[in-house]
Amino acid sequence: MLRRTYASLTLEAGESVVTLARWLGHSSPTVTLDYYAHFMPGVGGKGARAIDGLLGQPAAVVTAA
């Protein structure tokens, strides 16, 4: 349980999946994503905000489904 809590909080804080995979000893980031992707509700938000900024649009709010 402690491992899952650590991984979920680390991802929610914005740590790289690649880095977390190394820390957890996973064979690849894909394994990490298979287990913990649901803890990343804001994924894609940075890219959307960057494009909005380039286009002079107000930043869209990204919400979790």
Rank of each mutant, 00 (worst) to 15 (best):
V61T: 12
G44R: 03
L54K: 14
T32W: 00
A7H: 01
M40F: 02
V62C: 04
A50E: 09
T5R: 03
K46W: 04
R49Y: 02
A64S: 14
T19D: 14
E12M: 14
H26F: 15
A60F: 02
H38Y: 07
A13N: 13
E12A: 14
E12S: 13
T32V: 04
R3Y: 07
V43A: 14
E15H: 11
V17H: 01
F39K: 02
L9V: 05
A48K: 14
G45D: 11
T30Y: 11
G56L: 10
S8M: 13
G53K: 09
L24Y: 02
L54A: 13
A64N: 10
A59S: 08
A7D: 01
P41Y: 07
A65K: 09
R4T: 12
A64E: 12
T19K: 15
G14H: 08
R22V: 04
R3H: 09
V18D: 14
P41A: 09
S27Q: 07
K46D: 11
V62E: 02
A21E: 02
L55T: 12
L54R: 15
M1C: 10
Y36D: 00
V31G: 04
L54I: 10
A48G: 08
A7S: 09
G44Y: 04
I51C: 04
L9S: 05
L20I: 05
Y35P: 00
W23P: 00
A37D: 09
A48R: 15
Q57F: 06
P58S: 10
A59V: 07
L20T: 01
A64Y: 06
G47E: 12
P58M: 05
G44L: 06
V62A: 05
H26M: 12
A65L: 11
L55M: 14
R22P: 00
G25W: 05
Q57M: 09
L2E: 14
V61N: 04
G47H: 08
T10V: 10
D34L: 08
S16A: 15
A48S: 11
T63Y: 01
P29L: 04
R4S: 14
A59W: 04
D34V: 03
T10F: 02
H38K: 12
L2H: 11
A59F: 05
L20F: 04
E15T: 10
T32Y: 00
A60Q: 12
T32D: 01
L20S: 02
L2R: 11
A64T: 12
D52R: 10
G25P: 01
L24C: 09
L24M: 15
A48N: 09
S8P: 00
R49M: 05
G45P: 01
V18E: 15
R49V: 08
R4Q: 12
A21I: 05
T63D: 04
A50K: 07
V61K: 07
K46E: 11
S28H: 11
V62I: 12
L54F: 13
E12R: 15
T32K: 01
G47Y: 05
T32N: 02
S28C: 13
I51R: 14
L2M: 09
R3I: 10
A21W: 05
T32P: 00
G45C: 13
L9Q: 11
H38A: 10
R49H: 09
K46G: 02
P29C: 04
T63H: 03
S8L: 06
R22D: 10
D34T: 08
V62G: 01
V43T: 07
T10P: 01
L54C: 10
S16R: 15
T10C: 12
L33K: 03
S28T: 11
V43H: 05
